[in-house]
């Protein structure tokens, strides 16, 4: 039925395709089915209710005015923060100095820390009674803050934790990118006596652009679904003011035990990020070709 080459091609992707089908496609289809039904513990018949769950999620003020703005704000600030710090560190590590290997190893530390552990550490550091931050603040005569029970300070701490966690990832990929750039343009610029800023602005940045764009796209898509650090740091609190989209779906499905509504929220989020993903992919394609 197939030629020898087609058989080879199909066999190469068969295991991956099978796993993808069983553990991603099938669950998504079942989740879509659940999102149209009254799929809760008290209703064993799982009545078909059409788009009711979708309407409920979209008209939920908590989703519209808290969860979605939080998610987008988090995505933009987390990616921008990690990109700026990560790029600065990559540039720093790209010039030789004594102890460079040691500094590089220290800067990569957050990469090996599980988000859950990072969240536990930060929670302890910002503990309102015994955390070191408040101890230091009180020692220099300022008032300690209940960091994690105020909306914006809690959001800021979640953001800070995320940037701390993901900066090394940017550093690593951008450093690899920097080291594979051709040397000649930089030598020419040095002979001409170009200033550091102009070298960065007109040589490094444009040549590094494809790598930057790929990193940003990958990271933006991941930041959208952040779950673990928020869950461990604030659990979405105080109240529900730091809930992100993944948390919203999880809370509805497993804490309120309304699996239909949770699935609907998960699918709405999935559609949003799919649109963003396709737009970003177009962008990458255009920039990579320039």
């Amino acid at each position: 039925m197939f030629g020898e080459q087609q058989r080879f091609v199909l066999l190469l992707i068969a295991p991956a395709a099978l796993l993808l089908l069983l553990f991603q496609v099938v669950p998504i289809v079942i989740g879509a089915n659940a999102s149209f039904r009254d799929w809760a513990l008290y209703n064993p018949r799982k009545t078909w209710i059409g788009f009711d769950h979708y309407v409920a999620v979209i008209s939920d003020p908590a989703f519209l005015y808290v969860v979605l703005p939080n998610t987008f704000l988090f995505m933009v600030l987390s990616v921008a923060g990690a990109l700026v710090v990560g790029l600065a560190l990559a540039l720093l590590l790209n010039r030789p100095f004594r102890g460079q290997k040691l500094v590089q190893t220290i800067l990569l530390v957050p990469l090996m820390v599980a988000p859950v552990i990072a969240a536990i550490m930060i929670r302890w550091i910002f503990n309102d009674q015994f955390g070191i931050v408040n101890v230091v603040l009180e020692a220099i005569g300022l008032d300690g803050q209940p960091w994690l029970v105020q909306r914006w300070s809690a959001f800021g701490i979640i953001l800070l934790t995320d940037i701390w966690l993901w900066t090394p990832w940017f550093t690593l990929l951008l450093l690899a990118g920097l080291q594979s750039l051709p040397k000649e343009p930089f030598e020419a610029a040095a002979i001409d006596g170009t200033t550091t800023w102009r070298v960065f602005r007109f040589l490094t940045l444009p040549m590094l652009r494809p790598v930057i764009v790929v990193c940003v796209v990958i990271r933006a898509i991941d930041a959208f679904r952040t779950f673990d650090i928020v869950w461990t740091l604030t659990g979405g609190g105080p109240g529900r003011s730091t809930e992100l989209f993944s948390l919203y779906a999880y809370v509805h499905a497993f804490l309120n035990l309304d699996l239909g509504r949770g699935s609907a929220a998960a699918i709405i989020g999935g559609l949003i990020i799919l649109v963003i993903g396709v737009v970003l992919y177009r962008l990458v394609d255009r920039i990579a070709k320039v």
Partner: peptide
Amino acid sequence: VFRCVPYISWVLPLYFV
């Protein structure tokens, strides 16, 4: 496309599966 799908969208129903 599947790289973009948020984990929660397929892990949540994976619980029943």
